[in-house]
Nucleic acid binder design. Structure first.
Lengths: 216, 216
DNA sequence: TCCACTAATGACTTAAAAGTCATTATAAAG
DNA sequence: CTTTATAATGACTTTTAAGTCATTAGTGGA
């Protein structure tokens, strides 16, 4: 059932200079996500990539080098155009926020994004340069995006000002918790992403929408 | 400046049969939190505990055994009485929710609790039994507590029913994100806990409170 | 004060995984 | 078809850290 999917590994040697690095990186990312940096064996990475350990060293100088290369290669920066979108979006801020949340959920739960996140959380402290890069290209941009959306909503009178509007990251926070939950407790206490995203939107919107009358 | 705080390690051997295990566990927990399971060297644990590697084996059979013992020893279960509290609390559900949030923030950001959390997130997949224990004693109880509070609020007409009330964990989610944030991005983008907790309460409450009139 | 028990030591063995390199075999060029 | 360059191999060395144990020395009891 497993071997039926992959083409059975060719018995003959193959020289594939330009396909190798990406394959090694894929294999490495998967192993690093599963076992952490220290727990990953290059022999396992090699096996997963269908090669032999020595071959890795033709393309990467060391385990460290592979680790950095893998993360850098698979780190997809948030496109800056998202900010453009916020500036030119025609609809209501509620629609815009919902759109942003859909984008966030659609993206954060991709296997690759999850692997990256897990690695950053687990190993980030030991690789500050990479954490900083990840933060700059992903986290900070996401934060700015939410801030822009909330600011727009407040400016147009659709969202109320207040503590949440001052620290807009709190609006997206549940999505991040969901990601962490999935990578940790999913086997024991699975989380229904659809329902969760709905609950998140429900909570966030009714917390941030202006209303005619405020109770209490 | 470092050596001024600790009493300088005694040059003479000391026999301290009953103090050792806890000291080794403390040292181990710190090292595991910092370097992960595979990345932790028992020699470093020993140095941190002011002993020598061999001594660890007098008290623990293996690295694995120390790891499990350390986590189990420092895992403080949420007390079941919290549910009692919910049942007998005299004030409004808003007050009760705020109280629960204060408890959660007060507890989750203790160094020990943070270390535990970081280890569970990083290593949990490889130690399912411990993850399950952590989930049962901490996560599930916390979840039940929030659910009880929200249910009470809905029953008393203070909180509105809806998606968020159906999945009450979303109400606490931002606190968990804050914990993850602190353990990962604090050096690059520090998070002001006071402000964050306020923003969280602001968002959550205004999302969950019933109101006379609902806009849009 | 001395003895006996055992906590603690540190030098040791073992295991495992990182990293190296001479050899082999593939593919592309002539 | 042959040659040449080099990607790939796998057996190798080195390094690192887990785990062992005979020896040493604190400590509580006689």
């Amino acid at each position: 059932m497993d071997s039926a999917l992959q083409p059975p590994p060719p018995k003959t040697r193959r020289r594939r200079k330009d396909a190798r690095p990406a394959e090694i990186i894929d294999a490495g990312l998967a192993e690093f996500a599963e076992h952490g940096f220290a727990g990953t064996k290059l022999e396992d990475v090699a096996r997963r990539a269908g090669i032999v350990k020595g071959t890795i060293y033709r393309y990467f100088d060391s385990k460290d080098a592979l680790f950095e290369a893998a993360l850098k290669a698979r780190l997809t920066p948030l496109i800056d155009e998202v900010e453009q979108l916020v500036a030119t979006f025609p609809g209501s801020s509620t629609e815009l926020l919902r759109l942003a949340m859909r984008l966030a959920y659609g993206r954060m739960f991709q296997p690759d994004a999850q692997a990256l996140m897990r690695i950053i959380i687990s190993e980030g402290r030991r690789f500050p340069a990479i954490t900083e890069l990840y933060h700059r290209e992903t986290v900070a941009k996401g934060r700015r995006m939410i801030a822009a959306i909330v600011a727009r909503g407040v400016a147009r009178g659709e969202f109320r000002a207040g503590a949440a509007a001052d620290l807009p990251i709190v609006v997206m926070a549940p999505a991040i918790m969901a990601a962490v939950w999935k990578m940790t407790f999913e086997p024991f206490d699975p989380l229904d992403l659809e329902k969760f995203a709905a609950a998140h939107a429900d909570l966030a919107l009714d917390g941030i929408l202006t209303r005619g009358v405020t109770a209490l």
